Amino acid sequence: MASQGTKRSYEQMETDGERQNATEIRASVGKMIDGIGRFYIQMCTELKLSDYEGRLIQNSLTIERMVLSAFDERRNKYLEEHPSAGKDPKKTGGPIYKRVDRKWMRELVLYDKEEIRRIWRQANNGDDATAGLTHMMIWHSNLNDTTYQRTRALVRTGMDPRMCSLMQGSTLPRRSGAAGAAVKGVGTMVMELIRMIKRGINDRNFWRGENGRKTRSAYERMCNILKGKFQTAAQRAMMDQVRESRNPGNAEIEDLIFLARSALILRGSVAHKSCLPACVYGPAVASGYDFEKEGYSLVGIDPFKLLQNSQVYSLIRPNENPAHKSQLVWMACNSAAFEDLRVLSFIRGTKVSPRGKLSTRGVQIASNENMDAMESSTLELRSRYWAIRTRSGGNTNQQRASAGQISVQPAFSVQRNLPFDKPTIMAAFTGNTEGRTSDMRAEIIRMMEGAKPEEMSFQGRGVFELSDERAANPIVPSFDMSNEGSYFFGDNAEEYDN
């Protein structure tokens, strides 16, 4: 993207840094990872977990959730003011799984939030270390993106479920800051804005008074975040219109849905970061690795190297396929839920299948599930090659597409044709070009129609051997075009429920 120079890199967003050079960025990201790792080690000690239990991804998720809940100030305040039966607002906890007599047992633990905050700050040299908290939120978000298709949420806001490739980060909490905003897809931002506008339509006082002023500035800020994701002048001009509207209503909703559809071809720039579970960072720190000293990046080879040398386990339900569970977590670790499966298959070195073909449910185990038949197995999170994460949407291309997802959002900077089903997408653009945004709409449609099938995206960008740390010898991959490109292809993934 041309304006790259004016933006802070995501590592800076990730670490609240002012302008830093590459070495400083690597050190501050490393410091953040160190903090998460030290916190995780301490929690495993508190909970008396064995090494194996500490490497269980379900335990990692519970521990991450506990610290996120302990620092969720708004919710904590709300819980104190609106006490609900049987919930102690000062405590947080969740299921911890232990191996007892050759069987997995679930144990519900409860801790004072104050105590968890103390352990977290102690692991982070006394700081609140917001960057580390956001990092864990993005890992949870990436896992949700890989596990669930947001059909219901899309339909509720009037969008087409086939636009799911635009929904990265749709389950990120509001408090995820600049680093969170960077990884949100165009569809996620559109959905947040539509929800806001709908509230304004239904509630006369939404934009009024002292609160209304705050609401208005939040609305304009979200519009600017979305505008910054678009790469064409016409899309940005249309966002200006939406932002400046005196009284946002149905016309703005129409414009936003139009823009979301246009992003299936004229893709937005959305950041991709490899955020790993805390149970990967903990053992690495415990083994003596100093992330701050060595430096770390979320968008280069580092996460690949770390996963190459990590042992992570997962509980497996009786009829689940461990290899499929591994694929789910591998995609989440690489922030690749909406990437082209052919690119992923090449990088991973084994075939990556669409969601609907995987015999696996989510990673988390519900409290009512029976533990008797639970097994555990090693997650295979290694890769054959590594590639640089991208934040450009890439230019655009036609490809055989599917009944489910009709476009992709690249996660890796790797040369390819970008699949999208042009006739299906263009069919949504018939007729409606009147109104105050008509010239911009016409211009956007013209650009979409001009998108050429034979153009290559990320020209000359390749993948790298894991021994090639400096990215000196790019390998331009070859793809098996007979395979499906979309992950949520004609899909039956479970729906995400809060």
Rank of each mutant, 00 (worst) to 15 (best):
T350L: 00
V29H: 05
L226Y: 11
S269G: 06
E469P: 10
P248H: 10
I96W: 08
S314P: 14
L49A: 02
I301P: 13
E434T: 00
K214I: 08
R75C: 13
A85N: 06
S353W: 05
Q241M: 06
R102Q: 15
D34F: 00
R246L: 05
R175Q: 10
E81V: 00
A27R: 01
L154D: 06
Y52I: 15
S486K: 10
P277V: 06
A153W: 10
K357R: 04
Q42K: 12
Y219W: 02
A373W: 04
S377P: 04
E114T: 06
M440S: 15
N473L: 01
R400W: 14
K293P: 13
N309S: 01
E484L: 15
S287V: 10
R106K: 02
R106E: 10
C44F: 04
I201R: 05
K91W: 07
R348K: 15
K214H: 15
Q327A: 14
L259V: 13
C333T: 04
M191D: 10
T390F: 02
R348L: 06
E469N: 04
R221G: 14
M189K: 13
P283D: 01
A178V: 14
M191F: 10
T157V: 14
A428E: 06
C223I: 12
L256F: 15
K198A: 08
E454V: 15
R221A: 12
N473A: 12
K103P: 04
P248R: 14
R355H: 10
L264P: 01
E46M: 15
K90I: 01
M426V: 14
S170W: 13
I63K: 12
S262E: 10
V270K: 10
T62E: 06
H272T: 08
L328A: 04
A323I: 00
N417W: 14
Q58D: 07
M66P: 04
A233N: 13
R446N: 03
L56I: 06
A129C: 03
E369D: 05
R74E: 10
E380R: 02
A332P: 04
M13E: 03
N124C: 04
L143N: 14
S478R: 00
V100D: 02
Q149G: 13
F304C: 09
Y40L: 00
K452M: 01
A366S: 04
S438M: 03
S359W: 09
